[in-house]
Amino acid sequence: MQKAVFPNKLLPYLLLAPQVAITLVFFYWPASQALYQSMLKEDPFGLKSKFVGLQNFAQVLGNPDYLNSVRVTVVFSVSTAVLAMALALFLATAAEKVVRGKGFYRTMLIWPYAVAPAVAGLLWLFMFNPSMGTFAYLLRDAGYRWNPLLDGDQAMLLVVVAAAWKQISYNFLFFVAALQSVPRSLIEAAAIDGASSTKRFWTIVFPLIAPTTFFLLVVNTVYAFFDTFGIIDAVTGGGPAQATQTLVYKVYNDGFVNLDLGGSAAQSVILMAIVIALTAIQFRYVEKRVHYA
């Protein structure tokens, strides 16, 4: 790469300034505020605060509610990622087989990605709300006791399905591209080699799209961790009895509803650490991207 040389020593810094300013104002400042805040304790009236060191962290990590939230987050994220990816892969392989109207099907399958999380949540809430949802009505008619407002497992199921539904389109796009990059002749060779279509998929296609699958696993986990606030807020509000209160939702709830600013800040610092770890994994992976050729 050629080195660009600017005639003016100040110019390059000026060109960088807007980007740096935005990052400073919208990331470093709040992040450092959170870090600072996480070591303070407010009095009940919010009039003054005192420095308490790592006490907030100790309290958060020692709190069974917090550990429950960790468990909820893991269950929620893994279920959402697995469900969203499995369904997307299934749809992508099915879309591969469509001969006529391929473009139409693909476009239709991609649309849900354009729906905002909160709106997606509302859609599912309307469908499955025990008092007014159409599907809830049908489920009850079928003799199933459907009430996500009381049953934590059902609430979890509902938010997982809603969150996965929204992510399927994104995964679908990547899987379609990955499937197209598997050379046809490999599949033909496997067919001649006596592998059934199911066997061809698991022994040839699936290993070859593994890089995409891994990439999506990271992206979906991050999505389930951090981008599903809107869905949870709209569908369950974290309930019933904290059954769907993920880590991100708890930060919001403790900080802005319960006004425990120090504890909430400590939680967001822990979350920040998790983001950094996840990002590191992702970068490591992108750099060492598996190449088959």
């Binding site: 050379p183 002749s185 490999l186 033909e188 060779a189 496997a190 067919a191 001649i192 080699d193 006596g194 592998a195 022994t203 040839i204 290993p207 070859l208 088959y292 050729a293």
Partner: peptide, 30 residues
């Protein structure tokens, strides 16, 4: 009949070797 049932073997222009398998696995696959 399916390709597998025709008792033929084919050599492709781009070889169509399974990239994620060793040579031995490639030979053994069929």
């Amino acid at each position: 009949l399916e390709p597998a049932e025709r008792d033929i073997a084919m050599v492709f222009q781009n070889y169509a070797l399974y990239p994620h398998m060793t040579v031995r696995k490639n030979l053994e696959y069929g």
